[in-house]
Measured scan of single mutants.
Amino acid sequence: RLHIEVEGTELMKKLVEEAKRRNLNVRAKVENGKWIIEID
């Protein structure tokens, strides 16, 4: 499991799109103003 903290929506969208393209499980949520992304 990969755990990433990202500031900025554009970067988050790119990460999520790339993960979906590779058929990975992606969860994204906002915590303290940062995107928290978990990829399995």
Rank of each mutant, 00 (worst) to 15 (best):
M12S: 03
R1D: 07
R1V: 14
E7Y: 14
L2M: 08
E38I: 14
L24Y: 05
A28V: 15
E18K: 07
V30Q: 15
E5R: 10
K14P: 01
A28E: 02
L24I: 03
H3E: 10
E7D: 11
V30T: 09
M12L: 08
K13R: 14
E18R: 08
K34D: 03
G33L: 04
V16D: 01
E18G: 05
L2H: 08
I37Y: 01
N23L: 09
N25W: 08
D40R: 08
N25K: 13
E18Y: 14
K29V: 11
D40F: 15
E7N: 11
E17D: 11
E31P: 00
E18S: 09
I4G: 04
R22S: 04
V30R: 15
E18D: 09
T9L: 14
K34E: 03
H3W: 14
R22E: 02
L24H: 02
E38V: 13
E17T: 09
A28K: 03
E7R: 12
T9A: 13
V16R: 04
R27I: 11
E18A: 13
A19K: 02
I36Q: 02
V16Y: 08
E31K: 10
I39K: 00
L2F: 13
I4P: 04
L24Q: 02
E7Q: 11
L24W: 07
L15P: 00
E5D: 07
A28D: 01
N23A: 06
V16F: 08
I37N: 01
R1H: 13
G33F: 03
E10K: 12
E10Q: 09
G33R: 01
V6I: 09
W35I: 06
L2Q: 07
I4V: 07
E7M: 12
N25S: 11
R21T: 04
R1M: 13
L2I: 13
R21K: 08
W35Q: 00
I4Y: 11
K29W: 15
R27E: 04
N23I: 07
A28R: 04
V26A: 04
A19H: 02
E10S: 08
L2K: 07
I36L: 05
G8M: 13
L24S: 00
N23S: 09
G33T: 02
L2P: 05
D40A: 08
G33W: 04
K14Q: 12
V16Q: 03
I4S: 04
V26E: 00
I37F: 02
K14W: 14
E10H: 09
M12T: 02
V26T: 01
L15N: 00
V6N: 04
E31L: 13
V30F: 15
E38D: 10
K14L: 13
K29F: 15
E10R: 10
K13N: 09
N23D: 03
V6R: 03
N32F: 05
I37H: 00
N23M: 10
I39T: 02
A28I: 15
K20H: 08
A19V: 05
E18P: 00
W35Y: 05
E17R: 13
R1A: 11
A28M: 12
V30C: 15
L2A: 06
I36D: 01
E5Y: 11
K13V: 09
R22F: 07
L2G: 05
E17S: 09
E17F: 11
R27P: 00
V6G: 08
E31V: 14
E31D: 06
N32P: 01
I36H: 05
K29R: 15
E17Q: 11
V16S: 03
R21F: 06
I39Q: 01
I36K: 02
R27Y: 08
E18Q: 11
H3G: 05
W35L: 07
K20I: 13
I39A: 02
L11W: 12
L2D: 06
L11Q: 11
I37R: 00
I39P: 00
E5Q: 09
G8Q: 11
E10W: 13
L11I: 11
T9Q: 10
V26M: 04
V6P: 03
L15K: 01
L11M: 13
N23R: 13
H3K: 13
I4K: 03
G8K: 11
K34N: 05
